[in-house]
Amino acid sequence: MTTTLTSTGPPSAGKSATGRERNRYAAQAGGFAAPALLLVTLVLYLPFLWTGYLSFTDYTGLGNANWVGFDNYANMFSDADMRTAMLNTLYWVVGTIALPVGIGLALALLVHGLPGSFWYRLPFLLPYAISGVAVGVVWTFILQTDGALTQALRFLHLPGADLQWLIDSPLNTWVMIGATTWQGAGVNALLFGIGLASIPPGPVEAARLDGATGWQLFRHIYWPMLRPLTTVVVGLAIVGSLKTFDVVWAMTQGGPGNTSQTLALLMYKRTFIDFKWGSGAAIAVFLTVITVVAAGLYLRRQLSEAKAVN
């Protein structure tokens, strides 16, 4: 009986070679990522750190920045304009989730399965190609005092002709949310339409054979399968609503007075109109923290619920 011995080398040789190869790949990946990280640092993190520093000063855009500690933050929360801006921003969050997202989902469901469904969504998608300022200009023409809407209601003898759409508060905020809905519902319909098209036909056909129709199909088939996409759409809506600026500035500039201004608009006014850069920086930091926390909590909750279901 002959025994053949095969030399395989030290047991750790293969592992160490693999480790060196992994480190080499990591170093190469880091080299490729370094320019992007440097760019992000220069255009995002450094300005935020500078803004955070200014929020603790009384800087006015000229001269030296004197350290004032937390005075800007204390004054911010005791400011009536700040409370109005926070309430209006809350309106924007609720309205932007309920209207553009809700209407977009309804449009996608209505045309789902119809021949040429894209062409039904196209008229609602076109306003998305318009900038926010252009949307504000168009709807200002419609909603201004004695504007197109008022004249149409008066001609048709319908109620509402006496309303001051852009003057009365909080009506002015809600009609601006309506203008944003006109712009954003179409793209949400497109996204939900793509999500519906990706649903496999098997579960839908099985549910229909069991007698499910309408609301039952939506609740038990479409909605659970659209949930990952809905998480993304609603998350983007939350972030966008917290940063609302262009439509409000184009339509009312936060007025009359400060009744329709948002946090982003108040930040702009404090910095570039009142030249209170420290106060504006404090609002910017507060708005950034609120946006990150709100989006993070929402996404974390949705992802944890999805894991629980799976």
Score class of each variant (00 low, 15 high):
8 T>Q: 05
8 T>D: 02
15 K>Y: 04
20 R>D: 10
22 R>C: 03
23 N>K: 13
26 A>E: 10
27 A>I: 10
32 F>E: 07
34 A>C: 13
44 L>W: 07
47 P>N: 06
49 L>N: 06
50 W>M: 09
53 Y>W: 14
56 F>E: 04
59 Y>I: 07
64 N>T: 12
69 G>N: 11
76 M>P: 04
79 D>G: 07
80 A>V: 07
85 A>I: 09
86 M>S: 06
89 T>V: 08
94 V>G: 13
100 P>L: 02
101 V>P: 00
106 A>F: 05
112 H>F: 14
114 L>Q: 11
118 F>W: 13
118 F>I: 10
127 P>I: 05
127 P>F: 07
128 Y>T: 07
129 A>T: 10
129 A>H: 03
131 S>Y: 05
134 A>M: 10
135 V>S: 00
136 G>L: 01
136 G>Y: 00
138 V>C: 02
139 W>E: 02
141 F>E: 11
141 F>P: 03
141 F>L: 14
145 T>F: 11
147 G>K: 00
156 L>F: 15
156 L>E: 08
164 Q>L: 14
165 W>Y: 14
172 N>T: 06
176 M>S: 07
176 M>R: 06
178 G>T: 09
183 Q>K: 15
188 N>Q: 12
192 F>W: 07
200 P>A: 08
203 P>G: 09
203 P>T: 09
208 R>H: 10
209 L>Q: 10
211 G>N: 08
211 G>A: 13
214 G>H: 04
217 L>A: 05
217 L>H: 03
224 P>I: 02
229 L>V: 14
231 T>Q: 09
235 G>I: 04
237 A>C: 09
238 I>N: 02
246 D>L: 08
249 W>D: 06
255 G>Q: 10
258 N>Q: 11
264 A>W: 04
265 L>R: 01
265 L>W: 00
266 L>W: 03
266 L>M: 13
267 M>V: 04
268 Y>K: 03
276 K>D: 08
276 K>V: 00
281 A>H: 07
282 A>N: 00
286 F>M: 14
286 F>H: 00
294 A>D: 03
298 Y>P: 00
298 Y>E: 00
299 L>W: 11
300 R>F: 01
302 Q>C: 00
310 N>T: 11
